[in-house]
C-alpha cells in the first residue's frame, strides 16, 4: 500500500516537472483564484473585527432632567437592570459629566471660557447603557421612552452610530458577496485549466496507461498519479497565493493599520494565517482533485 502511494506520488512529481509550462499555467491560475479566496477571507475577518470594535463603542445614553434626584435615577437604573438584553449600565453624575467634558475639551479655550461664564454645571446626569447585541438598542430605547420614569427623562441619545453600523454591515456584506463571486469565477477557470493539463498528461501517458492495464495494474494505481498531480497543483498554488497575500498585506499595512483593534493589520493577519492557509490548501486541493477526476472520467479508460 505505501509502496503504491510512494510510487504514484513520485510519478506525479515527474509529470508535474515534465509538463513545464502547462504546470506553470495551471498553478498560476490557481494562485490567482486562491489569492482572491484568501483575500476575501482575510477581508472578512478584518471586517468582523472592525464591526466588533464599532459595536463596542455604541451605547444608549439616557439623560435625566436636571431636577431629578440621584436616588430616582438609581431607582430607574435598578429598573433597567432587570433587562436581559442589557449588558451594562453606568451612572454618570452631573459632576462626572462635567469632568469628562472638561477633559475632552481641555485644549479648546473658547469652550472652557464659556463654561466658566455660565458659572454652574450645565450638564445632565445620565445612564450609559450597553446592550449585548446592537440590534437590541431600538427596543431598549423604546422601553425607556415608555417607562415609569419617562417623565424624568430629558432625552435619549441613540441613533447616531446606528446608521454607521448598518452601513458598515451593508458594505461588508456586499463586498463579501462580490469577493465570493470573483473567487467562484476564478475557481471555475482554474478547474478548466487544470482539467486541460491533466487531459494532456493522460494523453501523453496513453502508452503507459495501456501497458499498465495490460499487466494488471489496479485502477487505483492508474488513477492515483493524476489525483496526486491535481493535489500538487492545489498545494503549490496555495503556498504561493498565501505568500503573495502576506506581501500584499505588508504593503497595505502602512495605510490601513488603524482598522483593526490591535492596530497592526500585518500581525493581525499573521495571527490568523494558519486558518487562511488551511482554507486555501483545502480549496486548492479540492479544485485540483475535482478537475483531475473530471478529466479521468472523460479521457481515462480503465
Amino acid at each position: 500500500m505505501f509502496l503504491i502511494i510512494g510510487r504514484t506520488i513520485k510519478e506525479s512529481f515527474i509529470n508535474f516537472w515534465r509538463n513545464g509550462w502547462l504546470s506553470v499555467a495551471a498553478v498560476s491560475v490557481l494562485v490567482l483564484s486562491l489569492f482572491v479566496v484568501g483575500a476575501v477571507f482575510t477581508m472578512g475577518m478584518v471586517a468582523d473585527n472592525v464591526l466588533k470594535n464599532v459595536e463596542g463603542k455604541v451605547n444608549v445614553s439616557v439623560y435625566f432632567k436636571s431636577d431629578v434626584s440621584e436616588e430616582k435615577i438609581s431607582q430607574s437604573k435598578n429598573d433597567l437592570e432587570s433587562f436581559k438584553e442589557i449588558s451594562s449600565i453606568e451612572y454618570v453624575s452631573k459632576d462626572k459629566a462635567l469632568e469628562i467634558f472638561k477633559k475632552d475639551n481641555a485644549d479648546e479655550p473658547v469652550i472652557m471660557q464659556s463654561l466658566e461664564e455660565i458659572g454652574e454645571n450645565p450638564l445632565l446626569a445620565s445612564l450609559v447603557i450597553k446592550a449585548n447585541n446592537p440590534s437590541q438598542y431600538q427596543s431598549i430605547s423604546d422601553y425607556v421612552s415608555n417607562a415609569s420614569f419617562k417623565d424624568d427623562v430629558s432625552r435619549i441619545n441613540y441613533g447616531k452610530n446606528k446608521d454607521l453600523i448598518n452601513r458598515l454591515n451593508g458594505i461588508i456584506f456586499q463586498s463579501k458577496k462580490i469577493g465570493l463571486v470573483v473567487a467562484g469565477i476564478f475557481g471555475a477557470v482554474s478547474i478548466l485549466i487544470i482539467f486541460n493539463t491533466i487531459r494532456i498528461t493522460i494523453y501523453t501517458h496513453k502508452q503507459e496507461i495501456e501497458v499498465m492495464r495490460l499487466v494488471g495494474a489496479s485502477n487505483m494505481f492508474i488513477r492515483l498519479p493524476f489525483i496526486f498531480e491535481g493535489i500538487l497543483y492545489g498545494v503549490i498554488a496555495s503556498l504561493i497565493a498565501s505568500l503573495i497575500l502576506m506581501v500584499a498585506i505588508k504593503f497595505i499595512n502602512v495605510y490601513a493599520s488603524s482598522v483593526v483593534s490591535s492596530g497592526n493589520l500585518f500581525t493581525f493577519y499573521l495571527s490568523h494565517a494558519p486558518y487562511v492557509l488551511g482554507l486555501q490548501i483545502a480549496i486548492g486541493a479540492f479544485l485540483g482533485i475535482t478537475s483531475s477526476w473530471i478529466a479521468m472520467q472523460k479521457y481515462l479508460k480503465i
Binding site: M1, L3, I4, R7, Q207, E208, E210, V211, M212, L214, V215, G216, A217, S218, F221, I222
Partner: peptide
C-alpha cells in the same frame, strides 16, 4: 507495446511495480 523511454529491465520490472 513496450515503453520506449524505459530499458529492457525497467520495462519488465514495470509490470511488477504497478502491481505493488
Amino acid at each position: 507495446k513496450l515503453l520506449p523511454q524505459k530499458t529492457v529491465f525497467e520495462n519488465v520490472a514495470y509490470a511488477l511495480e504497478v502491481c505493488g
